[in-house]
Design a binder for these strands. Structure first.
Lengths: 214, 214, 214, 214
DNA sequence: GATGAATGAGCGTTCATTCAT
DNA sequence: AATGAATGAACGCTCATTCAT
């Protein structure tokens, strides 16, 4: 007897939220404005999400779901590590271009110093991609595609660090500028060049016959 | 000769600002509170800095100056690339432990999406370290310490990305949690292990005889 | 014959209302919460009562009905004034203990300054008990149980004042504290002592041979 | 070096508060409106009082101070109990006419069921008048002006009850209507009649030779 | 008739900024 | 130059009320 799932409505609401939170930040965004932009009343947002913070988290999770899916797909299949890395970088590049706001939102929480949620959000968001990356690296290690003198966990960590920074570099103002400082406008525009370089970097770093391997 | 004691007063003021901005964020921090904690009037802050945002920037720059000095020192001298990398990582580790607030402040601007200053701040802050890193890599390249198939600029970029993420991982709540997810408590505590792994990773990535170099 | 089960439903509804209004006050109580607690929809409350204020009044009247009945019973019968007073005090004491919420609700309107209904409610509620008290006193006067130098109406008024304050003193936080200040915890707990003292007080006040009667 | 005491400003502010709280109640009154009426900004009220509740308490205390003074004066001096009672009733009547709002404010807290402050407010407000009344009665008892079979504390309590109800009856809508129901318009207007009757009632009640005295 | 999702005016509170002293 | 009281726009959140189903 309950009303039909207003799931699509919620989706739309969250999408408006993503957009606002991504551009203004958690503090900067205004719930009343979000409501107006979403074509609903403030009350509705509060009926659904209870608090601004809750609503923010809900937006974030919706945003992250897509990103995760994209990354999961890219890291699926039984392919050589390099191929997988190539796919991942491509996915990151494509996604960052098309979903600037999601990346910005992600970047947003990444720096919520004054925020109690930082810890729990990290656990919620990072655990998924981290386990995927770890698995990927571990399998590659089993196949002998990877040097054995570096800890699998740390490799996955560095790997993620490089991908994450790349994402931010395509979507977030500060990182964007930083990328330009390092690589010029080209760094921002020439995706192939970036990918080629990053792949080479990673490949060498993983190389079982690499220098530090004695 | 009129300005009696301004500079040291300003320093103290900025330090209070750094502390507050680092823990509460730009939005979360309260100018009136900062003034009280610093033992001056709000009016004074406004006389000196004009706006909250300006004051924030001033705090940031003061904070960054120290960090830069630390990194510059670590990357000075005519030593092999690996040695330099080792020093840099040590510097990052030491600095992150002792100056959590500075790192957090840095992390703070890194994600100020809704902020006009992002761009100019990036230019002001990053250009220094980037030119140092580029120079370092370039020299290493000249000495044949580095693979030639990867662009120097991009190498420096990846290099910085790894160091920056490491900093954040030691100082910022979200990144801290993320590091734990990847490497466990150990990753946060065992600096030697982290350094060893990161060094190996970087070393291989730079290796002139690395895999992708055919 | 259409109205199937309305009255008992209404009763339940009002009882929930009494409970909420008694503990939160007219302003503090939340219609949506009341509806949830009563297991009906807000719409139902509005269908039945039109406005929050109306609903409050309805609750109040339901509550008052019980109280009135209790007091009426206590003041019935052809007994000496003192006996009647004794019964009334007992009734007030018993009722206040068992129906804290009703008393609080009564106390609530008693101080609704900003409220148009104050006047009409007073007329609705007080006229009943007042006429009973007046009749009681008048009969007592006819039997010579009462001094003739004090106006019957005023006597009834003072009489009611003492009973009403007593009620509040047993049920309402402020009055409770006040009673403790005057008579200590004992005043709150020793009903017999209170009754004995109040009876003596009243008895003397009514005494046809009292001091001011010259 | 501090600014001159803004005490008169605070007084004015509190007086505006008294007026609004008296007519609208704690919940009903609007801080923004009070600020406007007082000719200050909301911020100022919050600078001085911190919260609405605090401000309310401050208003209440200011209001109560006057009332207390009036009652203290009336109960001062070494005069027979009846004279004192006469003065007190006169004081109550005069004060209630001239300070309706204060009485209403007092009445307001008297019924704050949903309110944590009820207890502490009672202690703050009532302890003063109660100790004065107790002392009065105790002295009268020492002089043999008072019956010995009724507890001094309880006598003081009943005494206060009668005076308090009288106050409310002159100032608060509900009580006003109630008074009219008992005594007609006359009860509201003829202060002498009311005083005469109440005095007679009290006098008899206190009479050492009263009926219940065996 | 009953429902409960939606509404949006309204309120308490905060805080960057100003300016008279 | 320094102060800090005053300001008031702005915001998160509540809840009485409505109305489509």
């Amino acid at each position: 007897m309950q009303k039909k799932i207003p799931e699509e409505k919620l989706q739309a609401l969250r999408n408006t939220g993503i957009s606002e939170f991504a551009s203004k930040g958690l503090d900067g965004a205004n719930i009343n404005v979000i409501a107006r932009k979403a074509g609903v009343s403030v009350g509705t947002i509060y009926n659904y999400f209870g608090t601004k913070e809750n609503f923010f988290t809900a937006c974030l999770e919706q945003a992250m779901k897509d990103l995760e899916t994209a990354l999961m797909e890219a890291s699926a299949g039984d392919v050589p590590l390099l191929t997988r890395a190539d796919r991942l970088i491509r996915a990151v590049q494509a996604y960052s271009r098309e979903n600037i706001e999601v990346i910005r939102l992600y970047n947003e929480i990444t720096s919520s110093s004054g925020n109690k949620m930082a810890g729990s959000l990290a656990r919620k968001i990072e655990s998924i991609s981290s386990s995927a990356y770890k698995k990927t690296i571990r399998e590659a290690a089993r196949k002998g595609e990877i040097r054995s003198d570096v800890n699998v966990e740390y490799l996955a960590f560095f790997f993620d660090n490089l991908l994450t920074t790349l994402q931010f570099s395509y979507a977030c103002p500060y990182y964007k500028e930083r990328l330009k400082i390092y690589c010029g406008e080209e760094g921002l525009k020439d995706d192939d060049l970036m990918r080629k370089n990053l792949l080479a970097f990673m490949d060498a770093a993983f190389d079982p016959k690499g220098r530090t391997k004695k």
